[in-house]
Design a protein around this nucleic acid. Structure first.
Ligand SMILES: [Zn+2]
Length: 412
DNA sequence: TGTGCCGGGCG
DNA sequence: CGCCCGGCACA
């Protein structure tokens, strides 16, 4: 806890001035990584940790106390403005969907060999599937009345939001009272004035959990197929975070009407594929993100968690519960089924979920919607420890079974 | 009703 | 983290 805070931004070989994060670009919902690997900051990749620069360590996270929420929100950026939440949602999603593109935009600005450079910084060249690991930090202050104004086209919101420079009615600091301190553990309990939820934006999931740890657990086990208690990583995890606090209603409205995080719009620059951004790459986004290692804005508002370091997926190839991007997309239309055999669309080459990298020009289906499928929990046929050994021999169970987790001994 | 196990909570 | 368990979706 807290280790990300100490990330030496200055050691980033490509870092620009950290102070730039206090410019108007602060408002650009950043896509930035949270390195969560041991030895962070000691080397190559960790050196570009972005949470340094003080922004991440300042201030408590938002209006924890309900009675202080109004004042905490007052004077904050974006406070109480109608549609702001939608704006932020749109902004985040825009940046998310566009950032991998934008990071490389315009391609003409790339020095020779920059693509290699970019690819050496996983958080600057976020693999497409990583973008599917995305949390939305859903925050709702009960006192914050959100006018249910009909949402204009989101794209029309975004530009003004992203205009550089100080925004009216906004201080130079925290963009919102619901600040989510980077790396700060989510408090287990909050006053009921604030509802903080984490929404898994793994396509077709949409699971909403109340804790970030739970969300990470969820993503690891459900989407990454990683055994909860098996250390199968190489000890390094990449966490790409951008924070977002979105009014619940606004989010619901906004997201339901928003065509989100399209894989086709997140082709990394190293893989110049057919670009079909859902939203036009905004100039300001270009400004903010063109520099591959430019310090991000404030600790973001939307969590983009990526973890491509894990291996040892529960199933070799993508499955409904551990899908690759293709599968996720295709699963939008699939009927719920057991994880036997995976429904990779024929157009995609055989691939393994986390390691799948789109080839240049590889056609990617677009994600039509974020609406989650009704959760279907497939149940394996295999007898698990409980049945095999019985309750009376609980000590013989695998630890997962003992902990009422997915059995790791008798895999489906 | 038993089983599998997700998600939350505790230390 | 390890560990436990409520609760739910299945069979
Ligand atoms: Zn077991």
């Amino acid at each position: 806890v807290g280790s990300p805070h100490a990330a030496p931004a200055a050691s980033c070989p490509c870092s620009s001035s950290p102070s730039s994060q206090h410019t108007g670009l602060d408002l650009v919902p950043p896509l930035y990584p949270h390195k969560n690997h041991p030895g962070m900051g000691t080397g190559h990749r960790g050196s570009c940790h972005l949470s340094g620069g003080g922004k991440a360590i300042e201030g408590p996270r938002g209006p924890v106390h309900g009675d202080t929420a109004p004042s905490a929100l007052a004077g904050r950026k974006l406070s109480g403005k109608a549609g702001i939440d939608e704006v932020m949602a749109a902004a985040v999603l825009t940046s998310l969907s566009a950032s991998p593109l934008v990071l490389g935009n315009p391609p003409t600005t790339h020095a020779p060999g920059e693509s290699m450079y970019l690819s050496s910084h996983p958080w600057t060249c976020v693999p497409q599937q990583d973008l599917t690991l995305l949390f939305l930090l859903l925050t709702r202050a009960c006192d914050r009345s959100t006018p249910s104004t009909p949402s204009p086209p989101l794209s029309s919101h975004v530009p003004s939001t992203f205009l550089p420079g100080p925004l009216p009615d906004e201080g130079p600091d925290e963009p919102d009272g619901t600040h989510f301190v980077f790396g700060e553990p989510t408090p287990r309990k909050r006053k009921n004035s604030t509802k903080v939820m984490f929404k898994c934006l793994w396509k077709s999931c949409g699971k909403v959990l109340s804790s970030s740890s739970g969300m990470q657990k969820h993503i690891r086990t459900m989407h990454l197929g990683r055994k909860a208690d098996l250390e199968q990583s190489d000890g390094e995890e990449d966490f790409y975070y951008t924070e977002l606090d979105v009014d619940m209603e606004a989010l619901t409205d906004g997201l339901s009407s928003l065509t989100p995080v399209s894989p086709t719009s997140s082709v990394p620059p190293a893989f110049p594929g057919p670009e079909a951004p859902l939203l036009p790459a905004l100039p300001v986004l270009d400004l903010a993100l063109a520099s591959p290692c430019s310090p991000p804005g404030p600790p973001g508002r939307c969590h983009v968690h990526t973890d491509h370091a894990y291996q040892g997926w529960r199933w070799g190839c993508c499955t409904p519960s551990s899908p690759c991007l293709m599968t996720v997309v295709s699963s939008l239309s699939r009927a719920a089924g057991p994880p036997h055999g995976h429904p990779c669309p024929p157009l995609s080459p055989p691939h393994h979920h986390p390691s799948h990298r789109p080839c240049p020009g590889e056609p990617l289906p677009s994600c039509p919607t974020l609406s989650p499928l009704p959760r279907v929990r497939p149940r394996g046929e295999a007898k698990k420890c409980r049945k095999v050994y019985g309750m009376e021999h609980r000590e013989m169970w695998c630890t997962a079974c003992r902990w009422k987790k997915a059995c790791q001994r008798f895999l489906d």
